Amino acid sequence: MKILAVTLPKVRICAVGQWPADRIDRDGFLILDDVVQKEIANIASLVSYECGEHIYAQEAPEQYIYVPHSGAVRVSHQLADGRNQIVAFYMPGEPFGLGENGVYLNSACALTDCLLVRVPRAALDALCEHEPRLQQDCLVGAMAQLRLSQRHLLIVTHQRALKRVADFLRECSRQQEVFDPVRNVLSLIMDRSDIADYLGTSVETVSRMLGKLEEEGLVKRLDARSLWLDLPRLNDLLDN
């Protein structure tokens, strides 16, 4: 991890819920006014992590809230039996790092090289006490974490492995960082082991279901990490 001695970029937080049109930019991020941006810049820092580098450990003291500026983060939970369950993949604008009772519930690792805005939790709490606008905007971050948890729960509760994989691909297609809507091409930034841990299945099952989707013409593998998606047909599969 490196702390970068540069001017903090404007913080972007994915808009969740109902917001007036003038509070959301064209990319779907909440527009934070200049006063809020300045106050965040006074307490935050920009940090870089290399692919595979650990950001924090499960049950470690909760010190920071993070907002990805670029790259992606994998958050996972080690179960009592030693198995690893990936609970979310965080993209730019999706805050993470909320703990409980002063500790992190999960561990976080850089899925790619990434830049993160790191905000000390204690300083953020103190700032929110006298800045109602910031408190409201930070609530969006908490809602974003809840949305990702709900998304994960909905995907893994599909009884059919084929629908789990199809739903995962559809959810990834909603991320502008990894999906080209003109070509309908998804660039997977995670490997099949990560996908299996996220979906609660095996690598072999993920490979087999991807093969079945390709046989049925719903996806086409362009290379090891790039997939062409027939989104209308994926939607039909998932809605029936």
Score class of each variant (00 low, 15 high):
K212R: 14
E216M: 06
M209H: 04
V206H: 00
S226K: 08
T205P: 00
L188Q: 07
W228R: 15
R221E: 10
E216L: 15
I195C: 05
R233G: 00
S226D: 02
L213M: 06
L199V: 10
K212V: 14
Y198G: 09
L222E: 10
V185F: 03
N235E: 15
R225D: 13
E215S: 14
L218M: 15
N235V: 11
R233A: 13
L227V: 08
L227R: 00
P232R: 01
L222V: 06
L231E: 05
K212W: 01
L186T: 06
D194M: 07
D191H: 10
V219G: 06
I195E: 02
S207A: 12
L222W: 01
L222A: 02
L186G: 04
N235P: 07
G217T: 07
L218R: 10
E214I: 06
D236G: 05
N235C: 11
M190H: 06
L229H: 01
Y198K: 08
E214Y: 03
L210P: 01
R233S: 13
A196P: 11
R208T: 08
E204P: 01
S207R: 08
L213P: 00
L237I: 07
S187I: 11
E216C: 10
W228A: 14
D223A: 00
Y198V: 07
W228F: 14
L188F: 03
S202H: 04
L186K: 08
V219R: 01
K212H: 06
D191Y: 09
S187T: 13
A224G: 10
R192A: 11
S187Q: 13
K212I: 15
G211A: 08
L237M: 08
L218A: 09
D191L: 11
D191R: 07
L199R: 04
L210C: 10
